[in-house]
Design a protein around this nucleic acid. Structure first.
Ligand code: MN
Ligand code: MN
Ligand code: ZN
Ligand code: ZN
Lengths: 140, 140
DNA sequence: ATGCAAATGCAAACTATTCGCATGTGATTA
DNA sequence: TAATCACATGCGAATAGTTTGCATTTGCAT
């Protein structure tokens, strides 16, 4: 099997399953669930065990290749390629569309808060929700 | 049983279980899970079925008496009394302490975003995480 | 090519939550 | 106060998402 630079760099083995799961995540513009990956995998006429997908997603997460997130008050975990840029999402409550927001509205706020609370702030999660342009119109 | 004004107002029956679950939520300063409620209920030498707790929490949520939230990237749902004020939380990654932040850093930001994205924004969820004062010290 | 640690597949376990159904209870009415 | 009845509860079973144990297979260093 052709060496995978990405996997080699983080010190994990190169397998057919990992390559394909990575490709699927890479081609997805939105966060996707383990089961969605499973289904896309099958569409490519390949077989994989769902537990292998979970193990791969876990590994990718700890190696920092992907981000695990619970979007949309959901019970299912979602995964997305880690582009190493800080992103937030806008989620349509009606059609569940997820739109990336660029930029982050916090710059000074976290500093203020650190002083007020004596916490050291390491990160945050911001999710905005509402109705997208399309749904707004169709719900008239 | 003494009439419960709060329950009467939202048109639901007054039961021992509902009263006690409400009290437990009311006395908790932090969001708590169904199971935590179950355990506190038992500490009061009362018995209840866990499924009844889930049904009560569901009812309280739809009646607007409480808020269901998935805090801390957690797989379990948490519940807290609805004080009808907009709150955010600061969560310690080490000890899991949850601290309320007063105020909300967004005022103009949502408007800007509506223009940029054509979404109608109806709400948002912001969670900040880091280390609390105590944990910062003890992790030296 | 060989050996071995690590990855996979499968089934079973697990956790949080929901549901069906028999029984019990609170609110309304007489 | 007693009768009524819709609705609340308890119990166990079902479900959804995820994890784990173990036998088998595979990638990679030698
Ligand atoms: Mn941000
Ligand atoms: Mn806010
Ligand atoms: Zn939409
Ligand atoms: Zn702490």
């Amino acid at each position: 099997m052709k060496q995978n630079k990405l996997f080699f760099n983080v010190g994990i083995k190169n397998t057919k399953q990992r390559n394909l799961v990575y490709d699927i995540l890479h081609q997805s513009s939105q966060p996707i669930t383990a089961e969605e990956i499973f289904l896309k995998y099958q569409e490519l006429d390949e077989a994989i065990s769902l537990s292998t997908i979970y193990r791969i997603l876990d590994l990718f997460s700890t190696k920092g290749l992907i981000i695990k997130t619970y979007i949309n008050e959901n019970t299912k975990a979602c995964f997305i390629i880690n582009h190493h840029d800080h992103k937030h999402y806008l989620i349509c409550k009606n059609c569940k569309k997820v739109v990336e927001i660029d930029g982050c509205p916090f710059t000074t706020y976290e500093k203020e808060l650190e002083e007020k609370t004596s916490f050291t702030i390491q990160g945050h999660k911001l999710e905005l929700f509402g109705l997208c342009g399309g749904c707004k119109d169709s719900l008239l």
